[in-house]
Write a protein that binds this DNA or RNA. Structure first.
Length: 424
RNA sequence: GGAGAGAUGGCAGAGUGGUCGAAUGCGGUAGUCUUGAAAACUAUUGUGCGGCAACGUACCGGGGGUUCGAAUCCCUCUCUCUCCGCCA
């Protein structure tokens, strides 16, 4: 969430920026500022009353010690009234803070000045399109048919074991998954990201920390018995490593990468978009996360975009880079770049990575801060993350684009990982 | 799953009802000394909120209670450790 301080100091700027996200914040920010005044007022009163009470309690203690029990008991009489008003003021204070917090949670992150206006995905800006879209042979088929033909992904078996959206990879299909995961992790590690293996199930506090809760509750699988959630992305456990942490300024940049299975309920999805590997309930992804000094987060974002681009290039896939418009930028992001690869048989661009700078929006909830030597108080750090990369759509494009009458060709960079050059 | 013990500042660890935001040690930072370093010595060293500041206030795992007053007593939740059981 946005910080109160930011909203107070940059009210008009925030309202203007949020219009790019098609969010009219005029009323809500006005309410917040009024509520905060109220909060301050009740705080001052409460503190004064508490101070009075503390003083009185000390006095009573001294009176008892010096044997003046009568005076002490007389003083006790006075505390009742103070107690009542403390209870009352505390209640006001708590409900005001609660109300304030609820409102703050409703405001999306302010977009970066470079985010174009727009309602939805059609208005995203194509920054560049690279690579050659292959001309497939006459018998070319989409990946879900290739998966069956070469017996590498079994959707029906996944169906039997679990349900739709939980495919079973087998043989060279399974090896290809493992190869991609290792390839991505190795490349990320070479780029300075420390590898972690996080829990795949998180508690409520972590869900709140990265913003999946409360609003996206329905998108996560919930283990009600233990009140835990299956992670929709490694971003959740990895970013929560740094919840309630105060970093030293010289710790920046903090860079982590993690492979994880990801679980998404995808409630409301249906139809041709979910065919084959295009949209799954369980899929594999390698994620990169960075924590940065506020002055350097956009530089870091650029670096992350370049890194992801390098991965796609090594896989020899045709791709394009999109700068998301206000309407398509997520609630929590300030600036997002999407990578899409072209899947030649279904003739579709498929999103394979989303690289975002969240600025201080996630940090504010996480209470992730940093402190420099000359700083009196800690400040919020900036968080960034990106997929590097999500597997299923990469696999879809690899299968479709590289199909030949002899079999499916594996890109050179992956061969050391698969141990074979052809799926046949 | 059963029985017991515990959770205090960056770390270790004292504190069992009043002046305790909390002893002490280690660590960190700054300084003195030194050619430099080490050692020694001196000072300083948590976070939130309000305040220009002085200062006030809250925080001793989370929540609730008792009390004029709670780190300290009670209830509850979570987590950790030890032993037993079960088991990858």
């Amino acid at each position: 969430m946005l910080s109160l301080k930011y909203l107070q100091e940059n009210k008009d700027e925030a309202i203007k920026a949020l219009k790019i996200k098609n969010f009219d914040a005029t009323e809500i920010i006005g309410k917040i500022i009024v509520l905060d005044e109220k909060r301050k007022e009740s705080q001052v009163k409460l503190d004064a009353t508490l101070a009075e009470m503390n003083g009185l309690s000390k006095e009573i203690g001294m009176l008892f010690k010096s044997g003046k029990a009568d005076e002490a008991n007389a003083a006790k009489e006075k505390t009742g009234e103070l107690k009542d008003s403390i209870a009352e003021l505390t209640a006001i204070q708590n409900s005001t803070i609660q109300e304030l917090n609820d409102l703050l949670l409703q405001i999306p992150n302010t977009p970066h000045s470079s985010v174009p206006a727009g309602k939805g995905e059609n208005e995203n800006v194509i920054e560049k399109t690279c690579g050659i879209i292959p001309k497939l042979h006459a018998e070319a088929i989409p990946h879900w048919e290739l998966a069956k033909k070469y017996n590498i992904i079994d959707f029906e078996l996944g169906n039997k074991i679990t349900g739709a959206g939980f495919p079973l990879y087998r043989g060279k299909g399974a090896i290809l998954q493992r190869a991609l995961i290792n390839f991505f992790l190795d490349e990320n590690r070479k780029a300075g990201y420390e590898e972690v293996i996080p829990p795949l199930v998180v508690n409520e506090a972590s869900g709140y920390g990265t913003g999946q809760l409360p609003d996206k509750e329905g998108q996560m699988y919930h283990v009600t018995e233990d009140n835990l959630y299956l992670i929709p992305t490694a971003e959740v456990p990895v970013t929560n490593i740094y919840r309630d942490v105060i970093l030293k300024e010289e710790d920046f940049p903090v860079k982590n990468t993690a492979y994880s299975a990801c679980f998404r309920r995808e409630a409301g999805s249906y139809g041709k978009d979910v065919r084959g590997l295009n949209r799954l309930h369980q899929f594999d992804k390698v994620e990169i996360v960075q924590l940065q000094h506020p002055d350097k987060s956009y530089e870091a974002l650029e670096g992350m975009v370049a890194h992801v681009e390098g991965l796609i290039l090594k896989l020899e896939l045709p791709y394009r880079l999109l700068r998301l418009c206000g309407g398509d930028t997520s609630f929590t992001a300030a600036l997002t770049f999407d990578f899409e690869v072209f899947s030649a048989a279904q003739e579709k661009w498929l999103e394979v990575s989303s690289v975002s700078n969240f600025e201080a929006y996630q940090s504010n909830r996480l209470k992730l801060r940093y402190k420099g030597k000359d700083m009196k108080k800690p400040e919020l750090a900036h968080t960034l993350n990106g997929s590097a990369l999500a597997l299923p759509r990469i696999v879809a494009a690899l299968l479709e684009n590289n199909q030949t009458p002899e079999g499916i060709r594996i890109p050179e960079a992956l061969v050391p990982y698969t141990g074979f050059e052809l799926i046949d």
